[in-house]
């Protein structure tokens, strides 16, 4: 109970700090990392996305909000080409990462996904040990020269994900035995271990309780120092808390995009306003 109380306190404190950080809710003047132009997605005959164009700034949190089925997750999955794995999905338009078209046939999707990590809605650690979970990425990409190297990567990734203290004595136990929130942080550690430039998060807190959610949000806020983060979220409060830039999707279209503070306090479009006021969604 004490531990829980401590976490809650810490979380409240964090939210307060987050709110007071000068750039917390405005898009700072960061260079553009990812540029999407006129992206469309078809699932078979059904069109899911209509001409999405958006710029995603470096080392900031960009959030995608919108009602269920609005296409925000679909667009997120375009950024690391996870839609390739879906039968019958067709992506049009261009998305560039540092000016390089990620849909260029000469680009290797394996390499792309090493540069753009992903955290999924439901925590999905591998049914292996905690250590193996984090070590997997560096292993397959050949990032560690030896065991000591790998140990270091695992420990530093777990530390960055704020999980190390909780699991340091049971690194060889299965990752699936952790609590939901810990599993999700393990998945974040796993993504970080490869040293990605961008981390995509697809509703990372939707399966978690409020305390675990607060811890993850705190973590996201820390991570934006070093990573470009794109987060899809169902919760407008979460978008408001963690992101600097917000994009509102509705029915497969990007309705409005801008600094988070503007979107939430002064939306231009009526649909955005309705959604934020809870009238649609």
């Amino acid at each position: 109970m004490d531990m829980l109380a401590g976490k809650v306190k810490r979380t409240e404190a964090t939210i307060n700090t987050m709110a007071t950080r000068p750039d917390a809710h405005t898009a700072p003047d960061r260079p553009i990392r990812i540029n999407a132009e006129d992206v469309t997605v078809h699932y078979g005959a059904k069109q899911a996305l209509f001409g999405i164009s958006i710029e995603i700034p470096d080392r900031a949190v960009t959030s995608f909000i919108g009602p269920s089925g609005c296409g925000k997750s679909t667009f997120l999955r375009c950024i690391n080409r996870m839609n390739d794995t879906i039968e019958g999905a067709k992506v049009g338009g261009t998305i560039t990462l540092d000016g390089e078209n990620i849909y260029d046939p000469s680009l290797d999707v394996v390499e792309l996904r090493a540069r753009i990590g992903m955290v999924f809605q439901k925590p999905n650690p591998f049914p292996k040990s905690i250590y193996e979970n984090v070590a997997y990425g560096p292993k397959i990409h050949g990032l560690a020269r030896n065991k000591a190297d790998l140990d270091e990567i695992v420990i530093s990734s777990l530390k960055k994900a704020g999980l190390f203290e909780e699991v340091k004595d049971r690194l060889n136990e299965p990752g699936t035995g952790l609590s939901g929130g810990q599993q999700q942080r393990l998945c974040i550690a796993r993504a970080i271990a490869v040293g990605p430039e961008v981390i995509l998060m697809d509703e990372p807190c939707s399966a978690l309780d409020p305390i675990a959610t607060a811890i993850i949000e705190e973590l996201i806020d820390e991570l934006r120092e070093n990573y470009t983060i794109v987060i899809v979220t169902h919760s407008m409060q979460q978008a408001a808390r963690v992101s600097q830039k917000t994009a509102f999707f509705h029915l497969g279209k990007l309705i409005e995009v801008g600094p988070t503070s503007d979107i939430f306090t002064n939306p231009v479009h009526k649909q955005t306003q309705d959604y934020i006021m809870g009238r649609i969604g």
Binding site: M82, T85, R113, G117, F120, K122, V194
Partner: peptide, 27 residues
């Protein structure tokens, strides 16, 4: 095998063969 496991592997940048032999086949 749950699609979540496949996505986890692919999302880490595993190739399809690695996904099958490292994750899907063992379970």
């Amino acid at each position: 095998v749950s699609p979540a496991l496949r996505q986890a592997a692919l999302g880490m940048g595993a190739s399809k063969t690695q996904m099958v032999f490292h994750h899907v086949l063992p379970v």
